[in-house]
Amino acid sequence: MPIERLADLANPATTPRIVFKVGSALLFGAGGVPDREWLASLVAEIAAAHARGQQVIIVSSGAIALGSARLGFAKGGRGSLADAQASAAVGQIALAGLWSDLLATHGIVAAQLLLTLEDLEDRRRYLNASATLGRLLQAGAVPVINENDSVATQEIRFGDNDRLAARVAQAASAQAVVLLSDVDGLYDRHPSEPGASLLEQVKGVTADVHAMASGTSGSGMGSGGMTSKLQAAEIATRAGITLAIANGTHASPLARALGEEIGTLFTPVRRDGARKAWLGGRLRMKGLLVVDDGCARALARGGSLLASGIVEVEGDFRRGDPVIVRDQAGGQLAQGLSEYDAAEIDRIRGARSNQQEELLGYAPRSAVIHRDQLVLL
Rank of each mutant, 00 (worst) to 15 (best):
I324A: 15
G303P: 04
L289A: 11
I108R: 14
V90T: 15
G67V: 01
V90F: 15
L164V: 01
I369Q: 15
K276F: 03
R163C: 06
L279Y: 04
V325T: 07
L337M: 14
S217V: 00
G31A: 09
Q355I: 02
A63W: 01
A171P: 04
S80D: 03
V183F: 04
A69I: 06
L164N: 03
L27E: 05
V56E: 08
I57L: 10
G330L: 07
P253E: 02
A307L: 09
E358D: 13
G273I: 06
A171N: 00
R319W: 03
L377C: 12
I241Q: 01
L117T: 01
S217Q: 04
S366F: 10
L27M: 07
A236M: 05
G287I: 12
E45Q: 13
D346Y: 00
E261Q: 11
E358Y: 02
A257N: 08
V19L: 00
K276E: 05
L180T: 11
R52P: 06
L115D: 04
E147H: 01
D160A: 04
A300Y: 02
A86K: 14
I156E: 14
G303W: 02
D321L: 07
D149R: 11
L254A: 04
R282S: 10
A30E: 13
I3D: 03
Q170K: 11
D346T: 03
D8C: 11
T216M: 10
L243I: 08
T116L: 04
A96L: 15
W38A: 06
L299E: 12
G159A: 11
G361W: 03
H50C: 13
T216A: 13
A343E: 12
A239G: 02
T227D: 04
L305V: 09
G23C: 05
P16Y: 04
A211P: 07
I93D: 15
F266V: 06
E261H: 02
E358K: 14
I324L: 15
G195E: 08
I108K: 14
G320A: 10
G263S: 07
E155I: 01
A213M: 03
D208P: 07
V290S: 08
L27Y: 03
H250R: 14
S197Q: 12
L115K: 05
A196K: 02
C295I: 00
R318K: 10
V19P: 01
V178P: 15
A169R: 03
E147M: 02
A233F: 00
T15D: 08
A48F: 06
L243H: 12
A131R: 15
S173R: 06
R352V: 06
G67E: 02
E37A: 10
Q356K: 11
D160N: 09
A30I: 00
V144L: 14
Q92N: 14
R318T: 06
S366H: 15
V178M: 12
K203A: 07
A244T: 05
A255N: 13
A7F: 08
R124T: 13
V19A: 00
H106L: 13
Q355T: 09
A255K: 10
I262D: 13
L288G: 14
S24D: 03
A296P: 12
A307F: 05
R135F: 04
G79A: 15
E312C: 05
L376M: 07
R365T: 14
S353I: 05
D35P: 00
A343M: 07
A96W: 11
F20Y: 12
G97W: 06
S304K: 09
S87R: 05
I369H: 15
R70V: 00
T206Q: 11
G134T: 10
